[in-house]
Nucleic acid binder design. Sequence first.
DNA 1: GCTATTGACGAAATCGATTTCTTAGACTTC
DNA 2: GAAGTCTAAGAAATCGATTTCGTCAATAGC
Lengths: 328, 328
Amino acid sequence: MATIYEVAALAGVSPATVSRVFNGQTVSAEKQRLVRDAAARLAFTPNKTARRLRKQSSEIIALLIPDIENPFFTALARGVEDRAQESGFSVVLCNTDDDPAKELRYLEIAASEQMAGVILSPASDEVDLGAIVSLGRPVVAVDRTTPYPVDAVKIDNRAAGIAATNALFDAGYRRIACIAGPAGIENTEDRFLGWRQVVSARGAGVHEGYLRHANFRVDGGHAAMRALLALGTPPDAVVTTNNLMAIGALRALVEARVPLETFGVAVVGELPFMPLDPASVVQVRLPARHLGRTAASMLLERIAGDAQPLRTVVLRAEVSRPGEDLAL
Amino acid sequence: MATIYEVAALAGVSPATVSRVFNGQTVSAEKQRLVRDAAARLAFTPNKTARRLRKQSSEIIALLIPDIENPFFTALARGVEDRAQESGFSVVLCNTDDDPAKELRYLEIAASEQMAGVILSPASDEVDLGAIVSLGRPVVAVDRTTPYPVDAVKIDNRAAGIAATNALFDAGYRRIACIAGPAGIENTEDRFLGWRQVVSARGAGVHEGYLRHANFRVDGGHAAMRALLALGTPPDAVVTTNNLMAIGALRALVEARVPLETFGVAVVGELPFMPLDPASVVQVRLPARHLGRTAASMLLERIAGDAQPLRTVVLRAEVSRPGEDLAL
DNA sequence: GCTATTGACGAAATCGATTTCTTAGACTTC
DNA sequence: GAAGTCTAAGAAATCGATTTCGTCAATAGC
């Protein structure tokens, strides 16, 4: 790796001039040429570490997400990466496993690595952003919110829950159950409230046993669906408040040999790799990639010095029309 | 952010001593205490950028993969991340989209960021590792290989193809087709050769029309399966050489109302979010996470200075037993 | 008791860029 | 023509750690 000094020596100028050439300062055309020739001959690439030490900031942003294996978050990551790349930034992807300790460790790394900013989907309400915020590094919360004063991008979860439930009503179902996430988690809570609102307004009121709280994952949805099917008067349709639980619910239906032609399933989220006929499941598409892209844009604006008041952007989810083929 | 100088001033020692305390050099117990107290009071964290500039290397490794949204690669990434974290390394995840230009850009970034090493799944045979290798940075190829002299971790693809096909034979199918990837791509090529070997040995020879080349993706598998079903004598089973094409093939079967009880499907790869009964599809589990973990281990050994001869580790895929439930 | 060895630790160099001074020359302006 | 801008570009400081070198004192060895 050639340094700026070797380039300067070869070009017969000072290191300062070389730096100026690569940072768009005023340098005479003649020396510009000399420097560029020398740089090309030596295959010079500026040492980012030295630059970062001097400038006290880098072109790297940290993305902290709970689960890199969940397609929702990979799509989100993809959006962040695309946007970051357009501005010449790189993204460090950190998996928190929803573990506040891991999250904190990554936040410390972000600070001591002089990363330009952080996008995170907080593992808990108690995430400690104090250190990084007081350092003046911009932070954007994505998908979930935090009590700290930072920009945020989220989804209109209640509207998503409403849309999912309405779609089932419109398809003629009347005994609509809900498999919700753990109680107290903002995201799925809002989605489940959307379900309750629609069921109260359009249906025969909320049937006690039709609401199931489960963990976020496939096994949770599976167990909940089995329980619903075992009821004296089982539902004829179900809304699940995330993608993984829907997989589990569908699996339970297949096992119980309940044909999807007669049982309605709506998901808040997408089922990205689904071999079933897409018309058989209502998917409320969460704009995960867009979420990431928007978060990255906001972060980059802050990095560039934008000082406008705090913003929270709420994106609206879209119901897939029946028969629309998402994954192809 | 407190610096080493402020800590030194507060503790009444020289900056060198502070550095020594945090790098395990010989420092008297008394000064150790002074320094640690001062550091704690100032919430001192060493500036990684300064350290990196001085040491000419960082604790960051780059992971270049073609598609972050493919579950195979996210599992791989997960393995890399887990292993890296154990050694205090961070992972920068870079999406190449199988685009040699993007790949090259990321390799340059890895070099100029003083990253400790690179794990990559090369977009093409022509990937230019010359620059990074000549810099002395270790590189490990994962899942795919390169002509450059670097360590590699791959899967025994032929054995995987053989295992998938044998499983269908064992289940009683005799007209076994194959949906392979694009011709000339080493990975799926080997898997398809495994299929051919088994079909030749155990079956009635290779039926011309039973081999379909498709692109890697869902739509490719879908189209290929439709074509197979339209044959005069359609197959009674199919092997697909990757996960996404299997999704497409299954979708085509569902659309054509072919019950999976009568039509065998085997995949080289896993179908991570599948609502179908797992017993209905033979999955040859690719140890993606392990692949990542192994690659990270090898890279970390090289980073630590290991100079043993080049290694290629070949991992064996495992056939899921029918009924074994993978995703729950 | 006097020289060698060892160990703790401070002073200063170093990593490779950016940036602030400074200076020398060119160009206005009255 | 003298004084007052600009402008290009070099010298040197700076970012914050690590590391070499050298010093001084304490211990060991004879």
